[in-house]
């Protein structure tokens, strides 16, 4: 219990640092490119347009308002991809500092995931524009979005810790992970619909072992379909997020004292 109290105390002590790190990331990102914020809206828009053109012609069955369908899933996937990628490098990237000062190392990982979250919220503008342009219907259920983002945030923190830890010991994890990410994208129904054209076993597989499915499905429900998410994906989303967090924290804690020898 004392240890726990101590942990909470240090977290509070370094809360300002966390904020500062997040604001640094954002500042640097938007300062460097002259288009700044515009870019983070433009990027998903452009990919969306390309994908829409390609896939509406490729896929036999048309998906209604494909741009919104695509974006409502893609947005979350991009967030997951960016935040875990950055989190993976968070410890190694601050090696010079960590060799000199005692700073709780998880602060850096947390900061990366957090700044990507802010980034994602900012890029919601893209979705808004698309919905207005395509005259999509706005559903009240969209207000539930923060809950889903929170789930995914927790999930990404957990995964981020795990990756950051692995990256200290095995630098080639970065290449392996980028392959995984690509596969993961196709394994998640983002550009396609998981309908009966897919074999039954594949559908089951995606729904049971792909965590991203839970978040994408929820987001589709509230934005695209205007439904309250079903209990399976909703509670499943929370449970998976916390399981991931526990695994990440455990892996990180276990080896954090050894980091210094490898960075």
């Amino acid at each position: 219990m004392d240890l726990f109290k101590y942990r909470i105390k240090t977290l509070f002590k370094y809360l300002d640092l966390l904020k500062e790190l997040v604001s640094r990331d954002l500042k640097l990102k938007y300062r460097r490119s002259f288009l700044g914020y515009v870019w983070s809206v433009l990027d998903p828009l452009l990919t969306m347009i390309v994908l829409t053109v390609v896939f509406t012609h490729l896929l036999g069955k048309k998906i209604e308002n494909y741009p919104v369908y695509l974006l409502s899933g893609r947005m979350l996937y991009d967030f997951m991809k960016n935040s875990t990628n950055n989190a993976m490098k968070s410890v190694v990237g601050n090696a010079a500092l960590l060799r000199k000062v005692y700073v709780p190392k998880y602060i850096f990982t947390l900061a990366k995931v957090t700044s990507c979250t802010v980034d994602m919220v900012l890029s919601l503008g893209a979705l808004l524009i698309v919905m207005i342009v395509t005259k999509a219907q706005f559903h009240l259920t969209i207000l539930l979005l923060p809950l889903i983002v929170l789930q995914l945030y927790i999930f990404c923190c957990g995964l981020g810790f795990l990756l950051a830890q692995l990256n200290v010991f095995f630098r080639d994890i970065q290449y392996i992970y980028s392959v995984i990410l690509t596969a993961w994208m196709y394994f998640t129904p983002i550009i396609y619909q998981l309908d009966d054209r897919f074999p039954r076993w594949y559908q089951l597989l995606v729904k049971s072992i792909n965590p991203m499915y839970y978040y994408v499905a929820q987001s589709r429900d509230i934005i695209y379909y205007g439904n309250i998410p079903g209990p399976r994906v909703f509670f499943g989303g929370w449970i998976i997020a916390f399981i991931m967090l526990v695994i990440g924290v455990w892996a990180f804690q276990r080896s954090k004292d050894k980091f210094i020898l490898y960075i």
């Binding site: 002590k13 300002d16 640092l17 500062e20 640094r24 500092l97 000062v101 700073v103």
Partner: peptide, 9 residues
Amino acid sequence: LNGMVLGHS
């Protein structure tokens, strides 16, 4: 940033 790394608020 530096100050906060050192644990200052």
